[in-house]
Design a binder for these strands. Structure first.
Length: 453
RNA sequence: GGCGCGGUGGCAGAGUGGCUAUGCAGCGGAUUGCAAAUCCGUGUACACCGGUUCGACUCCGGUCCGUGCCUCCA
């Protein structure tokens, strides 16, 4: 069996992945805060961890992938104030949109997708444990994690004590014993979402939800914890501190064994930001381009590398898919048994998800003659990456032969013209249709047409 | 300032101490009434300067440049 190597941020090196329990691999990735449409950066995280889960599922008998929905957060409250929509309506709406958009990118829904608001009790229990162990304190309705109480704090992001700063959501400096202390629980006004707690009516800080939900659904320690590179600090650092301290552990790996962080997406060379107005929403993209082309584009760079998003790149990856689908179309009548993923592709993916290498290996397959074996290999490789599973003719756009009698009439006329060597008329018809965005492709089975792109 | 990442052919993007991916674009050719697709051929590129080595794009040191995090952020 091939061995999976992953770059472990915690150790800062690529390591052979060794599951804590080979019969059940467990991973968690920090999901979105649902107050707006997901952007292409959210999508990269979703696609990367979807792929990682697929690869793990080819290697191990049971894999549980948990990715949360953050549905309590000050940004959501702000969105509610801005739009007048109730908080629940906002979070449910964008949760649904998120899942739909990620599905369009070929991401399976995580095995478990917990909502923060449904785990408040677990968070409170965790906070209580932290207070009992002397790692947290309450101050006027706030509960803070005391960073100096955890000797190994900072081990993930590599920051020394002096450099630590607060990762709190709100300004509570006056309550802090240490500048680096961060909020576990904070009081809510009457018009804000809140839950009863030993410290009064309030709501959780950001980091505690992931500690609570990952432990609840996966148990501690679990194998892999992931998210975007920017979450390393403070979010993941604080998660580790909370989870370790709540259980009296000093080893950072007592929470999650391997940490995986995906790189950032820039757009046309610039960082995505609201001020630049270049936040690229998945929702807009899935309306314009095939989800599979978007997925492949997100996988066109190795996951840890920065990825620059551009229309040109989408089109390039779409073409790539066209080539694969064209070959699959040629082999449409062959029986394929896509069970075994070609070794070269498994090897590439097992090398820290080297998707560009996997793509290169798939291109190498195209050098082979058409055969049931080749078809099987392509489909099996495509299945791991979750591409190439569609009907080739439909992908290539040749599905609509019988749907438009006007076009069919012109095609018939052109065929007749060609038979009479009236090429002037034949070309005229080609031009006419081209003007309508219709492309004629002559094949051994006769002319076909599709919408040009 | 602290921590980190990166500079590869026109573009994208892997990788390796010697055998110099892959895709897109370009160019030449084949094929096609035309077109598309396809096929064949075509590019010794690895920021700069030193060092190690029989040999470095790959290892080490330095320089320059770009970039991420350190505040909410995937």
């Amino acid at each position: 069996m091939p061995q999976l190597a992953l770059f472990n941020t915690l150790k800062r090196e690529k390591q052979i992945f060794e599951p804590l329990d080979p019969n059940h691999v467990r991973l968690y990735a920090c999901g979105p805060t649902v107050y707006n449409y997901a952007h292409i950066g959210n999508a990269r995280m979703a696609v990367v961890f979807d792929l990682l889960t697929r690869v793990l599922k080819t290697l191990y008998p049971k894999v549980t992938y948990v990715s949360n929905i953050t549905d309590v957060d000050d940004k959501i409250m702000q969105a509610s104030k801005d739009t007048g929509e109730p908080i629940d309506a906002i979070t449910r709406k964008y949760e649904t949109i998120y899942n739909d958009d990620m599905a369009a990118l070929g991401c399976d829904k995580p095995d478990i997708q917990p909502r923060a608001t449904e785990h408040i009790g677990d968070m409170i229990a965790l906070i209580e444990a932290l207070i009992e162990r002397g790692h947290a304190y309450d101050a006027d309705g706030h509960v803070l994690f005391n960073v100096p109480s955890f000797e190994n704090y900072g081990g993930l992001s590599g920051r020394s004590r002096d450099e630590q700063v607060a990762g709190a959501r709100v300004e509570v400096a006056s309550y802090k014993k240490d500048a680096a202390d961060f909020v576990l629980w904070k009081p809510s006004n009457d018009d804000e979402p809140g839950w009863d707690s030993p410290w009064g009516r309030g709501r959780p800080g950001w980091h505690i939800e992931c500690s609570a939900m990952s432990e609840k659904h996966l148990g501690l320690p679990f194998d892999i914890h992931g998210g975007g590179a920017d979450l390393k600090f403070p979010h993941h650092e604080n998660e580790i501190a909370q989870s370790c301290c709540a259980h009296g552990e000093s080893d950072l790996a007592a929470f999650a064994n391997v940490w995986v962080h995906n790189g950032f997406v820039t757009v046309e060379g610039e960082k995505m930001s609201k001020s630049l107005g270049n936040v690229t929403l998945v929702h807009d993209l899935v309306g314009k381009y095939p989800g599979e082309a978007l997925r492949l584009t997100l996988l066109s760079a190795q996951y840890r590398q920065p990825l620059d998003w551009s229309v040109e790149k989408i089109q390039q990856n779409k073409k790539q898919l066209d080539r694969f689908y064209a070959r699959l179309d040629e082999m449409k009548d062959m029986d394929a048994t896509p069970d075994a993923v070609p070794e070269s592709i498994t090897a590439a993916l097992c090398d820290d998800l080297n998707t560009p290498q996997a793509l290169a290996e798939m291109n190498a397959l195209l050098k082979e003659e058409n055969s049931p074996e080749l078809k099987s290999k392509l489909l099996a490789a495509g299945r791991v990456l979750n591409v190439l599973q569609k009907d080739p003719a439909a992908w290539l756009g040749f599905g609509g032969d019988n749907q438009d009698s006007d076009i069919q009439a012109l095609l018939d006329e052109r065929t007749a013209a060609k038979a009479e060597k009236n090429f002037a008329r034949a070309d005229e018809i080609r031009d006419e249709l081209a003007a309508q965005g219709i492309e004629i492709v002559d094949t051994p089975e006769g002319p076909k047409w599709r919408k040009a792109n």
